[in-house]
Simulated scan of single mutants.
Amino acid sequence: MTAPPGRRLLHLAAALDRQSAYDAASYVESARLAESGGLDFVTLDDGPARPGPAALAVLSQVAPATHRVGLVPTVTATHTEPGPVQAAVAALDRVSRGRAGWRLGAPAGPAAAEAARPRDGTEPGGTEGGGTEGDGAERDGAGRGAPVAPWSPQGHLVRVAEATGGHACGTAARHADVVLVNATHPAQAAAVRDRLRDEAARSGRDPGALRVLAGLAIDLRDGEYAAERGGEFPRSEHGREPGGGGGLRRTARGPLYRGGPVDLAELIAAWHREGAVDGFHLVPSDPRRDLERLVNGTVTLLQHRGLFRTFYPGGTLREHLGLARPVDRRTGRSGARRAGAEGAA
Protein backbone atom coordinates (compact mmCIF):
# COMPACT_ATOMS: atom_id res chain seq x y z
CA MET A 1 0.00 0.00 0.00
CA THR A 2 1.39 3.39 -0.97
CA ALA A 3 0.31 6.86 0.08
CA PRO A 4 -1.26 9.34 -2.34
CA PRO A 5 1.32 11.26 -4.45
CA GLY A 6 3.46 13.59 -2.36
CA ARG A 7 2.08 12.25 0.91
CA ARG A 8 3.75 9.90 3.40
CA LEU A 9 1.80 7.12 5.05
CA LEU A 10 0.58 7.74 8.58
CA HIS A 11 2.26 6.23 11.62
CA LEU A 12 -0.10 4.84 14.25
CA ALA A 13 0.64 3.49 17.71
CA ALA A 14 -1.54 2.50 20.66
CA ALA A 15 -1.20 2.19 24.43
CA LEU A 16 -1.96 -1.15 26.09
CA ASP A 17 -2.36 0.32 29.58
CA ARG A 18 -5.17 -1.14 31.66
CA GLN A 19 -5.98 -1.00 35.36
CA SER A 20 -7.31 -4.51 35.97
CA ALA A 21 -4.83 -6.95 34.41
CA TYR A 22 -2.41 -8.83 36.66
CA ASP A 23 -0.82 -11.14 34.08
CA ALA A 24 0.50 -10.90 30.55
CA ALA A 25 -2.31 -12.81 28.78
CA SER A 26 -4.58 -9.82 28.21
CA TYR A 27 -1.64 -7.74 26.97
CA VAL A 28 -0.69 -10.46 24.51
CA GLU A 29 -4.24 -10.45 23.15
CA SER A 30 -4.21 -6.65 22.74
CA ALA A 31 -0.76 -6.61 21.12
CA ARG A 32 -1.85 -9.25 18.61
CA LEU A 33 -4.90 -7.17 17.77
CA ALA A 34 -2.71 -4.10 17.23
CA GLU A 35 -0.42 -6.17 15.04
CA SER A 36 -3.37 -7.38 12.95
CA GLY A 37 -4.05 -3.71 12.14
CA GLY A 38 -0.45 -2.99 11.16
CA LEU A 39 0.20 -0.50 13.99
CA ASP A 40 3.80 0.66 14.22
CA PHE A 41 4.14 -0.06 17.92
CA VAL A 42 2.37 -0.46 21.24
CA THR A 43 3.37 1.20 24.50
CA LEU A 44 2.99 0.11 28.11
CA ASP A 45 3.51 2.44 31.05
CA ASP A 46 4.65 1.63 34.56
CA GLY A 47 3.06 3.17 37.60
CA PRO A 48 0.67 2.67 40.53
CA ALA A 49 -2.41 2.91 38.28
CA ARG A 50 -1.44 -0.32 36.53
CA PRO A 51 -1.13 -3.43 38.72
CA GLY A 52 0.89 -6.54 37.99
CA PRO A 53 4.41 -7.02 36.59
CA ALA A 54 6.58 -4.20 35.31
CA ALA A 55 6.02 -3.04 31.75
CA LEU A 56 9.34 -4.43 30.56
CA ALA A 57 8.53 -7.86 32.02
CA VAL A 58 5.08 -7.88 30.40
CA LEU A 59 6.37 -6.95 26.95
CA SER A 60 9.13 -9.57 27.26
CA GLN A 61 6.29 -12.12 27.35
CA VAL A 62 4.43 -10.36 24.54
CA ALA A 63 7.51 -10.49 22.27
CA PRO A 64 7.54 -14.23 21.45
CA ALA A 65 3.74 -14.19 20.95
CA THR A 66 3.93 -11.50 18.23
CA HIS A 67 5.90 -11.13 15.02
CA ARG A 68 5.91 -7.56 13.69
CA VAL A 69 4.42 -4.92 16.01
CA GLY A 70 6.93 -2.74 17.88
CA LEU A 71 7.13 -2.99 21.68
CA VAL A 72 7.83 0.18 23.70
CA PRO A 73 7.79 0.02 27.51
CA THR A 74 8.16 3.08 29.70
CA VAL A 75 11.44 2.61 31.53
CA THR A 76 12.90 5.04 34.04
CA ALA A 77 16.66 5.56 33.83
CA THR A 78 18.99 7.85 35.72
CA HIS A 79 22.14 9.71 34.77
CA THR A 80 24.22 7.65 37.19
CA GLU A 81 22.97 4.15 36.36
CA PRO A 82 21.57 3.96 32.82
CA GLY A 83 23.47 0.77 31.94
CA PRO A 84 21.24 -1.90 33.55
CA VAL A 85 18.11 -0.28 32.12
CA GLN A 86 19.53 -0.08 28.61
CA ALA A 87 20.73 -3.67 28.86
CA ALA A 88 17.24 -4.85 29.90
CA VAL A 89 15.55 -3.08 27.00
CA ALA A 90 18.26 -4.36 24.66
CA ALA A 91 17.38 -7.89 25.78
CA LEU A 92 13.76 -7.22 24.76
CA ASP A 93 15.06 -5.97 21.41
CA ARG A 94 16.98 -9.19 20.80
CA VAL A 95 14.07 -11.42 21.85
CA SER A 96 11.77 -9.52 19.49
CA ARG A 97 14.41 -9.40 16.71
CA GLY A 98 14.64 -5.66 16.55
CA ARG A 99 11.15 -4.52 17.48
CA ALA A 100 11.89 -2.78 20.78
CA GLY A 101 11.99 0.86 21.75
CA TRP A 102 11.92 2.60 25.08
CA ARG A 103 9.91 5.49 26.35
CA LEU A 104 12.03 7.38 28.82
CA GLY A 105 10.32 7.77 32.17
CA ALA A 106 12.90 10.04 33.81
CA PRO A 107 12.11 13.75 34.19
CA ALA A 108 13.16 15.92 31.27
CA GLY A 109 16.51 17.59 31.62
CA PRO A 110 20.25 16.91 31.31
CA ALA A 111 20.04 13.67 33.33
CA ALA A 112 17.29 12.32 31.09
CA ALA A 113 19.21 13.32 27.98
CA GLU A 114 22.32 11.49 29.18
CA ALA A 115 20.30 8.41 30.06
CA ALA A 116 18.73 8.43 26.61
CA ARG A 117 22.05 8.80 24.75
CA PRO A 118 22.92 5.59 22.86
CA ARG A 119 25.98 3.81 24.23
CA ASP A 120 26.50 1.41 21.34
CA GLY A 121 28.65 3.83 19.32
CA THR A 122 25.92 4.69 16.85
CA GLU A 123 24.91 8.11 15.62
CA PRO A 124 21.16 8.83 15.48
CA GLY A 125 19.67 9.99 12.23
CA GLY A 126 22.47 8.52 10.10
CA THR A 127 22.49 6.42 6.97
CA GLU A 128 22.58 2.66 6.56
CA GLY A 129 25.10 1.25 8.97
CA GLY A 130 24.81 0.12 12.53
CA GLY A 131 26.17 -2.33 15.02
CA THR A 132 29.65 -3.73 14.97
CA GLU A 133 30.43 -7.40 14.67
CA GLY A 134 31.55 -7.98 18.22
CA ASP A 135 30.18 -10.37 20.74
CA GLY A 136 27.22 -9.42 22.92
CA ALA A 137 27.84 -6.08 24.61
CA GLU A 138 30.15 -3.49 23.08
CA ARG A 139 32.63 -1.54 25.22
CA ASP A 140 33.70 2.09 25.21
CA GLY A 141 36.92 2.95 23.45
CA ALA A 142 39.36 0.27 22.28
CA GLY A 143 37.87 -2.63 24.17
CA ARG A 144 38.22 -1.01 27.58
CA GLY A 145 35.86 0.51 30.08
CA ALA A 146 32.37 -0.36 31.26
CA PRO A 147 30.09 -2.38 28.98
CA VAL A 148 27.49 -0.40 27.10
CA ALA A 149 24.20 -1.39 25.50
CA PRO A 150 24.52 -4.69 23.55
CA TRP A 151 24.38 -4.62 19.77
CA SER A 152 20.84 -4.18 18.46
CA PRO A 153 19.37 -5.87 15.37
CA GLN A 154 18.12 -2.40 14.36
CA GLY A 155 21.31 -0.41 14.98
CA HIS A 156 20.15 1.10 18.24
CA LEU A 157 16.91 1.10 20.16
CA VAL A 158 14.16 3.46 19.06
CA ARG A 159 13.78 6.19 21.69
CA VAL A 160 10.35 7.68 22.38
CA ALA A 161 9.99 10.91 24.36
CA GLU A 162 7.29 13.43 25.21
CA ALA A 163 7.53 17.13 24.42
CA THR A 164 5.20 18.88 26.85
CA GLY A 165 7.37 21.82 27.86
CA GLY A 166 10.26 23.98 26.73
CA HIS A 167 13.09 21.91 28.20
CA ALA A 168 11.41 18.62 27.27
CA CYS A 169 10.98 19.82 23.70
CA GLY A 170 14.68 20.56 23.32
CA THR A 171 15.77 17.27 24.90
CA ALA A 172 13.38 15.27 22.73
CA ALA A 173 14.53 17.02 19.53
CA ARG A 174 18.17 16.25 20.28
CA HIS A 175 17.86 12.66 21.46
CA ALA A 176 14.56 10.98 20.53
CA ASP A 177 13.51 9.16 17.37
CA VAL A 178 9.77 9.52 18.08
CA VAL A 179 8.28 12.49 19.92
CA LEU A 180 4.78 12.54 21.41
CA VAL A 181 3.05 15.92 21.56
CA ASN A 182 -0.26 17.10 23.01
CA ALA A 183 -2.34 19.30 20.72
CA THR A 184 -6.05 19.94 20.21
CA HIS A 185 -5.75 21.52 16.77
CA PRO A 186 -3.55 20.70 13.74
CA ALA A 187 -2.08 24.20 13.63
CA GLN A 188 -0.93 23.80 17.23
CA ALA A 189 0.61 20.41 16.46
CA ALA A 190 2.33 21.74 13.35
CA ALA A 191 3.89 24.58 15.33
CA VAL A 192 5.34 22.13 17.87
CA ARG A 193 6.66 19.89 15.10
CA ASP A 194 8.33 22.85 13.38
CA ARG A 195 9.99 23.79 16.66
CA LEU A 196 11.21 20.21 17.19
CA ARG A 197 12.64 20.02 13.68
CA ASP A 198 14.40 23.38 14.04
CA GLU A 199 15.95 22.25 17.32
CA ALA A 200 16.99 18.92 15.77
CA ALA A 201 18.68 20.75 12.87
CA ARG A 202 20.53 23.08 15.26
CA SER A 203 21.87 20.06 17.14
CA GLY A 204 23.22 18.51 13.94
CA ARG A 205 20.46 15.97 13.34
CA ASP A 206 18.45 15.41 10.19
CA PRO A 207 15.07 16.97 11.09
CA GLY A 208 13.36 14.67 8.60
CA ALA A 209 14.40 11.67 10.70
CA LEU A 210 12.23 12.79 13.62
CA ARG A 211 8.76 11.24 13.85
CA VAL A 212 6.23 13.46 15.63
CA LEU A 213 3.03 11.78 16.82
CA ALA A 214 0.04 13.50 18.42
CA GLY A 215 -0.94 11.86 21.70
CA LEU A 216 -4.69 11.36 21.93
CA ALA A 217 -6.88 9.54 24.45
CA ILE A 218 -9.84 7.89 22.73
CA ASP A 219 -13.26 6.81 23.99
CA LEU A 220 -15.10 4.93 21.22
CA ARG A 221 -18.18 3.88 23.14
CA ASP A 222 -20.64 5.70 20.81
CA GLY A 223 -21.71 4.08 17.53
CA GLU A 224 -19.96 4.73 14.24
CA TYR A 225 -20.16 8.54 14.26
CA ALA A 226 -21.60 10.46 17.23
CA ALA A 227 -18.50 12.59 17.86
CA GLU A 228 -19.11 14.61 20.98
CA ARG A 229 -18.86 18.37 20.71
CA GLY A 230 -15.69 19.51 22.40
CA GLY A 231 -16.58 22.78 24.10
CA GLU A 232 -14.96 25.60 22.14
CA PHE A 233 -14.12 23.28 19.25
CA PRO A 234 -16.90 23.52 16.61
CA ARG A 235 -18.08 20.58 14.58
CA SER A 236 -20.07 20.05 11.44
CA GLU A 237 -22.42 17.17 10.61
CA HIS A 238 -21.43 13.96 12.45
CA GLY A 239 -18.79 15.92 14.32
CA ARG A 240 -16.55 16.28 11.26
CA GLU A 241 -14.67 19.52 11.03
CA PRO A 242 -11.87 19.13 8.43
CA GLY A 243 -8.65 20.12 10.11
CA GLY A 244 -10.48 21.13 13.26
CA GLY A 245 -11.30 19.58 16.58
CA GLY A 246 -14.69 17.92 16.12
CA GLY A 247 -15.08 15.31 18.86
CA LEU A 248 -11.92 16.58 20.55
CA ARG A 249 -11.77 18.18 23.98
CA ARG A 250 -9.13 19.34 26.40
CA THR A 251 -8.83 17.50 29.70
CA ALA A 252 -6.45 17.71 32.62
CA ARG A 253 -4.58 14.68 31.23
CA GLY A 254 -4.43 15.94 27.64
CA PRO A 255 -6.58 15.83 24.48
CA LEU A 256 -9.52 13.38 24.46
CA TYR A 257 -11.57 12.20 21.49
CA ARG A 258 -15.01 10.85 22.39
CA GLY A 259 -17.17 9.48 19.60
CA GLY A 260 -17.11 6.71 17.02
CA PRO A 261 -14.37 5.10 14.89
CA VAL A 262 -15.60 6.68 11.63
CA ASP A 263 -15.29 10.23 12.91
CA LEU A 264 -11.93 9.37 14.45
CA ALA A 265 -10.74 8.29 11.00
CA GLU A 266 -12.00 11.61 9.63
CA LEU A 267 -10.14 13.56 12.29
CA ILE A 268 -6.88 11.65 11.67
CA ALA A 269 -7.22 12.05 7.89
CA ALA A 270 -7.86 15.80 8.26
CA TRP A 271 -4.73 16.33 10.36
CA HIS A 272 -2.79 14.24 7.84
CA ARG A 273 -4.03 16.38 4.94
CA GLU A 274 -2.72 19.48 6.69
CA GLY A 275 0.65 17.85 7.37
CA ALA A 276 0.33 18.63 11.07
CA VAL A 277 1.97 15.47 12.44
CA ASP A 278 3.46 12.21 11.22
CA GLY A 279 0.80 10.18 12.99
CA PHE A 280 -0.94 9.47 16.29
CA HIS A 281 -0.31 7.67 19.54
CA LEU A 282 -3.78 6.60 20.70
CA VAL A 283 -4.62 5.76 24.30
CA PRO A 284 -7.86 3.74 24.65
CA SER A 285 -10.12 4.57 27.57
CA ASP A 286 -11.36 0.96 27.58
CA PRO A 287 -8.47 -1.09 26.13
CA ARG A 288 -10.47 -4.14 25.06
CA ARG A 289 -13.40 -2.23 23.50
CA ASP A 290 -11.61 0.79 22.08
CA LEU A 291 -8.63 -1.06 20.60
CA GLU A 292 -10.93 -3.45 18.75
CA ARG A 293 -13.00 -0.57 17.35
CA LEU A 294 -9.83 1.32 16.48
CA VAL A 295 -8.34 -1.57 14.51
CA ASN A 296 -11.51 -2.92 12.89
CA GLY A 297 -13.08 0.49 12.26
CA THR A 298 -10.74 3.48 12.16
CA VAL A 299 -7.65 1.69 10.83
CA THR A 300 -9.64 -0.19 8.19
CA LEU A 301 -11.07 3.09 6.88
CA LEU A 302 -7.63 4.72 6.77
CA GLN A 303 -6.24 1.71 4.91
CA HIS A 304 -9.10 1.86 2.41
CA ARG A 305 -8.23 5.51 1.73
CA GLY A 306 -4.58 4.69 1.19
CA LEU A 307 -3.42 6.58 4.27
CA PHE A 308 -2.13 3.65 6.34
CA ARG A 309 -0.24 0.45 5.56
CA THR A 310 -1.94 -2.87 4.89
CA PHE A 311 1.25 -4.85 5.59
CA TYR A 312 4.53 -4.33 7.43
CA PRO A 313 7.42 -3.24 5.17
CA GLY A 314 10.02 -5.01 7.29
CA GLY A 315 10.69 -6.72 10.57
CA THR A 316 12.16 -4.04 12.85
CA LEU A 317 10.59 -1.06 14.55
CA ARG A 318 12.98 1.29 12.75
CA GLU A 319 11.72 -0.09 9.43
CA HIS A 320 8.09 0.42 10.47
CA LEU A 321 8.88 4.06 11.22
CA GLY A 322 10.92 4.60 8.05
CA LEU A 323 14.06 5.40 10.06
CA ALA A 324 17.50 4.62 8.66
CA ARG A 325 19.91 2.43 10.58
CA PRO A 326 22.38 4.59 12.51
CA VAL A 327 26.02 5.00 11.55
CA ASP A 328 28.57 3.38 13.86
CA ARG A 329 30.82 6.29 14.87
CA ARG A 330 33.69 4.02 15.87
CA THR A 331 34.02 1.76 12.83
CA GLY A 332 31.65 2.97 10.10
CA ARG A 333 31.05 -0.70 9.33
CA SER A 334 27.67 -1.90 8.17
CA GLY A 335 25.63 -4.24 10.33
CA ALA A 336 23.78 -5.58 7.28
CA ARG A 337 25.39 -9.02 7.30
CA ARG A 338 24.76 -9.55 10.98
CA ALA A 339 21.24 -8.20 10.70
CA GLY A 340 20.55 -10.76 7.98
CA ALA A 341 21.88 -13.53 10.16
CA GLU A 342 19.67 -12.43 13.04
CA GLY A 343 16.61 -12.33 10.79
CA ALA A 344 17.28 -15.83 9.53
CA ALA A 345 17.77 -17.26 12.99
Rank of each mutant, 00 (worst) to 15 (best):
residue 121 G to T: 01
residue 244 G to R: 01
residue 121 G to S: 04
residue 219 D to T: 13
residue 199 E to S: 12
residue 127 T to Q: 14
residue 85 V to E: 10
residue 160 V to T: 12
residue 130 G to L: 01
residue 163 A to Y: 08
residue 9 L to N: 10
residue 209 A to C: 04
residue 312 Y to E: 03
residue 101 G to M: 07
residue 60 S to K: 02
residue 273 R to Q: 15
residue 198 D to Y: 13
residue 161 A to T: 13
residue 151 W to F: 14
residue 11 H to R: 11
residue 101 G to L: 07
residue 116 A to M: 09
residue 111 A to S: 10
residue 23 D to S: 00
residue 44 L to A: 02
residue 335 G to P: 09
residue 22 Y to G: 01
residue 128 E to Q: 00
residue 216 L to G: 04
residue 13 A to L: 06
residue 244 G to E: 09
residue 299 V to A: 03
residue 282 L to E: 00
residue 45 D to G: 00
residue 287 P to S: 00
residue 95 V to I: 15
residue 108 A to C: 07
residue 205 R to D: 06
residue 314 G to N: 10
residue 92 L to N: 11
residue 40 D to I: 06
residue 66 T to S: 03
residue 320 H to N: 06
residue 327 V to F: 15
residue 34 A to Y: 02
residue 98 G to K: 03
residue 293 R to D: 07
residue 160 V to Q: 09
residue 91 A to M: 15
residue 14 A to R: 04
residue 182 N to Y: 14
residue 341 A to K: 14
residue 330 R to N: 08
residue 314 G to T: 03
residue 152 S to I: 05
residue 324 A to V: 02
residue 323 L to D: 02
residue 22 Y to N: 03
residue 338 R to D: 01
residue 24 A to E: 11
residue 148 V to F: 14
residue 45 D to C: 00
residue 183 A to Y: 11
residue 208 G to T: 07
residue 15 A to F: 06
residue 88 A to M: 11
residue 333 R to D: 09
residue 87 A to E: 11
residue 171 T to I: 13
residue 320 H to S: 04
residue 130 G to F: 03
residue 258 R to G: 07
residue 143 G to Q: 08
residue 126 G to S: 06
residue 182 N to C: 10
residue 236 S to T: 07
residue 159 R to S: 08
residue 290 D to I: 04
residue 123 E to L: 09
residue 251 T to W: 05
residue 184 T to P: 15
residue 163 A to C: 05
residue 147 P to E: 03
residue 178 V to D: 14
residue 343 G to T: 05
residue 173 A to S: 07
residue 20 S to Q: 11
residue 54 A to M: 10
residue 182 N to P: 12
residue 124 P to C: 05
residue 38 G to K: 08
residue 232 E to L: 15
residue 3 A to H: 10
residue 299 V to F: 03
residue 273 R to V: 10
residue 211 R to I: 02
